[in-house]
Simulated scan of single mutants.
Amino acid sequence: MLDQKQLRELAGFRSESGTVLSVYVNTDLTGQSKERARLVLREALERIRNQANAEDVSRIENYLDREYDWQPRALALFSAADDSLWRTFALPVAVQTEAHAGAVPYLKPMAQLLEDYSRYAIALVDREQVRLFLVQLGGIEEKEGWVGQEVKHHKQGGFSAKQYQRREDQLARQNLRQSAEATTRLMEQSHATGLILGGLGETLPRFREMLPKALQKRVIGTVALDMEAPLTQVREKATELISAGEQEQKARLVDEMITAAAKGAGAVTGLPDTFYVAHQGRVRTLVVERGFEAPGYLCDGCGYVSAEPIGKCPFCGGKPEPIADAVNRLVQKVIDSGAKVEVVAPSAVLTRAGHVGAILRY
């Protein structure tokens, strides 16, 4: 499964002897045939054929024709034969077919996918056990959970019944504690963005109280689910909650960034300022409008990208040359630095601010 580590590895790649061919292919056959998907790919490759290495073009075409099984809904490929680069990523969500050739991989669609489909953990719990899941990129995977001792209910009255019920309640608390520990381990190991709690009745609030305080703050919501719920139902409920939560979170992020930038307090907006702080390594979170592209000027010395033509690089004195998509360079630089990229839906407020901005580290 695609993750941030793989994205950073690609972001750190530079072709020393040729070009990198980056290709994204929509292979979702629910609305098209294989022949149609191949035709759209050929058209995309034809548009950049003069810029790409012929060996890379041939390798990608052969992979689709002879090796790919057409099961995933999309595919991302990166090839640079002169530099021994060949990476393929099967994607469980559809993407637009496009091809790009340049000195670095074209990563904006990958960054957008990872932000739109961040990894979340789900803990489906009752008084006896917990089922654990990871959701990312539209897919769901059930992980190893924890099953405790059976908890029974005593239906008759009397003193002995109360003693019996107290023991059963104590056993349930012990089970919930063990379930909370298993959930905490999954969150630590998976580096999930947030946690969703699922279940029925009074179990969920009790279970939440047993989680570490820091983990309680990462719970994004709860869903009503039976312990025997199938994977498809768990994924559907979780996806609805995640989508609503992320839209709200990204809207708040844009507002906070623009407000902070207006006060000159830890944020910038617009391409010129964002390019500048990115080159300084000051970006903590890059916020870029989905689909936003713009040309720019790349310094041949230190790699600084400017929005406007300049005679001399302010960092090394090198000579900036025009490039077609400066925004991709910005995204790559930020990913390479270990910072976060948030791709957000177009909005009037962000458009007025220049389509892009950044929350700063310092």
Score class of each variant (00 low, 15 high):
R185M: 13
A81D: 12
S179P: 00
P272L: 03
R36Q: 14
H279T: 04
S79I: 05
G158T: 05
G198A: 04
G296M: 13
N26T: 00
R87I: 11
G318I: 06
T193A: 14
A324E: 15
E150D: 11
G198I: 13
R167V: 15
I258P: 01
T269L: 01
V25D: 02
S33W: 01
A345P: 06
S58N: 08
A123Y: 07
P346L: 09
E144F: 03
S347H: 04
A44R: 11
Y106H: 14
A238C: 06
E150W: 09
A192S: 14
Q178I: 00
Q32C: 05
A52K: 00
V151E: 13
N26P: 04
K108A: 08
L114F: 03
D126S: 06
Q129C: 00
L286H: 02
E144P: 01
Q163K: 15
S190W: 14
E308M: 13
E46C: 05
V349K: 11
L360K: 02
R49D: 12
G281Y: 09
I359H: 00
C299L: 14
N328T: 13
H191P: 13
A37W: 03
S118Q: 13
P109C: 15
P72L: 07
D116R: 08
P272C: 03
D336Q: 09
V234K: 04
T27Q: 01
Y120Q: 06
Q280R: 15
G303N: 07
A99P: 02
Y24V: 12
A90P: 06
L91N: 02
V104H: 15
I140D: 04
E35R: 08
F315P: 08
A11H: 05
E181L: 07
F159P: 00
V147K: 13
M1W: 03
L231H: 08
F89M: 02
R59D: 11
P272K: 10
S179G: 07
P109K: 14
W70M: 09
P314Y: 03
P212S: 03
K152E: 15
K213I: 10
C302P: 03
R167E: 15
L124C: 07
R73V: 01
L298C: 05
T222Y: 04
L286C: 02
F78M: 10
Q136R: 10
L10I: 10
V151L: 15
L171E: 02
A224L: 08
R127N: 11
L2D: 00
G245E: 12
H153D: 07
E256T: 06
F89E: 11
E43A: 10
A307V: 14
R329F: 14
K312N: 05
E321I: 02
A101P: 07
I335R: 00
T222L: 04
D336L: 06
A94S: 12
T184D: 13
W70K: 10
G301Y: 11
M110G: 11
L286T: 00
E35M: 00
V130T: 08
P346G: 12
F292A: 10
T269N: 03
C313I: 11
L215E: 05
Y117V: 06
G102V: 06
V130K: 01
